[in-house]
Design a protein around this nucleic acid. Structure first.
Lengths: 346, 346
DNA sequence: TTGTAAGCGTTATCAC
DNA sequence: GTGATAACGCTTACAA
């Protein structure tokens, strides 16, 4: 049916090893046989079996992504497709495939991760989220699996990671609102189990503290990274006796929800309420008004993670490394700081 | 280092085949040995090698996705993550992994597809776009690879596919605008090389025809599925001596671009200009004004594709099947047909 | 109920 | 330069 290396060898009148050598572009092989073997390959429409090769080479030329068990969460927020895009770009360039671990329905993340790495399906893994005290880190460390975490491991583990300086980034956004005169600033964040939430909350409160404002837990809401959470959170904040005049949202999707709530209640943005998001997703620019948001360079985050992983796959003895991807506040209209003359004031 | 089936066998005092049998939950195995082997597995922290298993079983329990060579295109439009989400959901449930074919930098799609399927890396493939006269279809057909196309193959091939009735869907959106009194309706679409574009264009013009309006090529623009194309397209249409009063955009991202252009030129939506999109991406609802758009149930498209593929992987002799996923116009504010009383008019 | 042995399609190590 | 031969780690007749 489908031909194998032996068929090619026989038909070309050589041994399988020779065929394997022309496959690998081995230098010490005569031009004549190389050509002949190549011809036969074409003739037989031969394609080497990647699985067999992986078995003997003990490497699959693939990197695994552990998708959070809630797939919904994963693909509904533009963050993930965008990291994936960065990862894919690097993988593509280096000839690595990407396998999405989805299997083992009903099993927990630890099992899924173990299976993926121990079964030799992939040469390394990228973790797409970092939870507080995440048991996955231990699995990676114990198994000495080349791996990179997108985010910051909360424990002290010997692992590679790529992150933003989230504390600083949140500090910067909060400070931006404070400089615009806001005293009472609310925070709408993701799950408190995520390291990123904790870090951004810390940055937010350190900015308050620096301005002599005491942290008010009533001004903080958190939940999943979905629009509804932003909507409901904003509703709750606006129902407060002393409502905030500015909002730091830890994700653009949350900010969108917050804007929708504010709009329904008749608040004008930015006149009555300033909102700053996080991520600078493509649609932030298209929002009405266009959204001020902290660009964390998600694509670069993905690229860097993949590069780091590939390095550690090729040289397994390399010590763990980490990288910080810079952030950058993109000032548009929702914070009230827009200056239409800026372009002329160089 | 990492233990294999032989280690387990030795330590448990049985043969490798016995270990293999307990792995496969073979019925005819004594409870005693099963327990003993299981204990040793745990003790040795044994995980079966998936690659070796694939080699002998001639199946990888993975399905491949051929990502369009322009990754940018792929992840930048919410359409793809959403199909992927549907596919992933089904794959997860059935214990299949997903491999994204990204490798072979610089090679063309045909090569990438051939490599993926012929190298036995995956048990089947899903094609995420259908181009006019796409050479990929022939590759799939010739190789008798279980496969499903998301979209409609333009040629007459013996392949599974899942699609919307795009002709009808575009007819419906166009008709919707016509019923609202629009005579001059523009069309902003994706690449003319995609079957989906051709189909929607056909539906658009058949609706015009039915209303006795002659098709005007000046009212049609097309390009990639990116926001800029919508923006520039709209600019061009609005520069026309006789500008359209309604727009059918073949993608919400295009519609967003169109709205931005209209806004910049001072046109009010829907008073001066009606716009209808396609896809109902999450942010369509959040647009300002909220966007009227044709929901094509992308998630279901992905699910159906995956289900079909899995069926054909398990029973390879099954004849090709196809499925149509229903569409549904979601009326919001950009078409001017919003009726705030609708909820009370049951 | 369990063991033996062949084989899945490659690559790597020696020879020559 | 090229060819035997032995892995790689598993499954599966066929025996026992």
């Amino acid at each position: 049916m489908t031909s194998n290396i032996k068929d090619v060898a026989t038909k070309a009148g050589v041994s399988p090893s020779t065929v394997s050598r022309v496959l690998a572009n081995h230098p010490r092989i005569s031009v004549a046989t190389r050509e002949r073997v190549r011809d036969v390959m074409r003739e037989l429409d031969y394609h080497p079996n990647a699985i067999a090769r992986s078995l003997v080479k003990q490497s699959s030329q693939a990197i695994g992504l552990l998708i959070p068990s809630s797939i919904e969460q994963f693909f509904l927020n533009p963050f993930f497709p965008e990291v994936l895009r960065g990862i894919t770009q690097i993988a593509q360039y280096s000839g690595y495939d990407i396998v999405l671990s989805t299997a083992l329905h009903g099993k927990n993340d630890v099992d899924r991760l173990e299976r993926m790495v121990r079964s030799k399906q992939v040469d390394g893994v990228i973790l797409l989220t970092a939870r507080l005290n995440d048991p996955l880190f231990a699995v990676l460390e114990e198994n000495h699996i080349p791996s990179v975490v997108v985010g910051r491991p909360s424990q002290d583990v010997q692992l590679c990671w790529v992150n933003n300086d989230n504390r600083r980034a949140a500090y910067d956004t909060t400070m931006h609102l404070q400089k615009l005169g806001h005293q009472r600033i609310g925070f709408i964040g993701g799950s408190q189990e995520l390291v990123v939430t904790v870090d951004r909350l810390a940055g937010y409160s350190s900015a308050l503290q620096e301005q002599g404002v005491t942290f008010d837990p009533n001004l903080v809401v958190s939940g999943e990274f979905i629009e509804d959470v932003g909507y409901n959170g904003m509703m709750r904040l606006l129902a407060l006796a002393e409502r905030p005049s500015g909002i730091v949202a830890s994700d653009d999707v949350l900010a969108f929800g917050a804007m929708r709530a504010a709009g329904e209640l008749g608040y004008r943005i930015p006149e009555d309420l300033a909102i700053v998001g996080f991520n600078d997703i493509p649609l932030a620019r298209l929002a009405n008004p266009p959204m001020t948001t902290m660009n964390v360079h998600i694509y670069e985050l993905g690229q860097t993670a993949a590069k780091l992983l590939l390095q550690h796959i090729e040289k397994r003895e390399l010590p763990p490394q980490s990288a910080i991807v810079p952030h950058e506040l993109v000032i548009r209209r929702t914070c009230g700081a827009w200056n239409p003359l800026a372009a002329y004031q160089q």
